[in-house]
Write a protein that binds this DNA or RNA. Structure first.
Lengths: 208, 208
DNA sequence: GTCTATAGGCTGATAGAC
DNA sequence: GTCTATCAGCCTATAGAC
């Protein structure tokens, strides 16, 4: 079995190489710049060879999305463990925004481009509060709202799912607008995030 | 002068026809589908003719952006006149979201695509609180925050510009995420908008 | 397994005839 | 002023040689 195992290993190695080259292209020049010819040039193979490892360009894009989503989870995982839900909210917002700004083109690909890639990641992850197999990243938000509720920071009869969605859109708005119109959002993404979370918790600051 | 005036008029008429055909294409099939050939087919002229009226494709796109931005102003103008700033906030949010959902592809082009188009609209409109020639749409938000401040809904020492940006990103987040991942935002855009504005004003709802 | 060569399509933009 | 014809380039994907 040694020979077929080696072949298998070599196969996955080139597959991995294709993915890494593709990710580099996306990160540097955006998704539109991801072409089979460029990938082929980067890995020093002929374009046709790529089709032995991936069905088409979309399959490569999908894999990059899945990988990027994993990276987002890596950003969220440490802060999701913070016990105080108020602190956790601030940390989650900071981490989400930091991911978006550090991985701009990946964020674009996952959350701002063709929904078919987003769907590829989330399609087995319907957003609900079932605690089931749904999108792990979104469950971090739902759990956050549930824990805020347990501390009377959110009304007991409020819909955690709904408020989690409001929070997600708010954070997404900061990242996406900053990525598209940074010249006209004079505030930093981090500053907007901090204000957003405080306002989310307590509303607009009042005269004291 | 009658002849040259007629010629001038005919020139602007075809120009207008090109723009209208282009807008139809963008609205129906998105910006990526806007090609010179398709425009030519729609107006029943040869592709080369378009270049007598517009320098290139980008100039056409820019004009569509400017027109779309005007439409956004048309949505905002009536509600910007509401005197009570709390009511006005709700109405502005509703109008902004309604514009985004009703003109999805235009919204994409202006706020979710290449920044160069966004810049074309806003470049003479630096976001500040000077009341100068800046972006009219954004001044609606700044004035709103100022008026909330005058009613003690916002602390006197708070930065209206900053909170206006937070509000903008929040509204943009709802529209843009709904346009990209509507399958995973189970709440309606309107519902998210209502919750967002209430939370913006008063924070998460508490047990009463 | 990898290559070359190419089919078959698209694009923006332009030169030059009429 | 408008056309035809075309340049020069891009793309995905595949057939068939090696």
């Amino acid at each position: 079995m040694g020979i077929s195992e080696r072949k298998e290993r070599q196969k996955t190695e080139l597959r991995q190489q294709i993915l890494e080259a593709s990710q580099t292209i996306v990160v540097q020049d955006g998704f539109a710049a991801l072409t089979m010819r460029k990938i082929a040039e980067a890995i020093e193979y002929a374009p046709a060879t790529i089709y032995l490892y991936f069905e088409n360009r979309d399959e490569i894009a999908k894999q990059i999305c899945i990988h990027g989503y994993q990276e987002l989870l890596d950003y969220l995982h440490p802060v999701a463990a913070i016990s105080d839900p108020r602190d956790r909210l601030l940390a989650i917002a900071e981490a989400y925004i930091r991911f978006g700004m550090n991985h701009a083109e990946t964020y674009r690909l996952i959350f701002m481009a063709d929904p078919k890639f987003t769907n590829a990641i989330l399609k087995d992850a319907p957003i609900d509060d079932s605690g089931g197999p749904g999108s792990p990243a979104f469950h971090v938000l739902i759990k956050l709202l549930d824990d805020l509720k347990a501390q009377d920071q959110l009304a007991a009869n409020a819909d955690s799912l709904h408020f989690a969605q409001v929070l997600w859109t708010a954070l997404h708005g900061i990242v996406s607008l900053k990525l598209t119109c940074s010249g006209f959002l004079t505030a930093s993404a981090e500053g907007l995030g901090t204000t957003m979370t405080h306002t989310f918790l307590a509303g607009l600051p009042k005269n004291s």
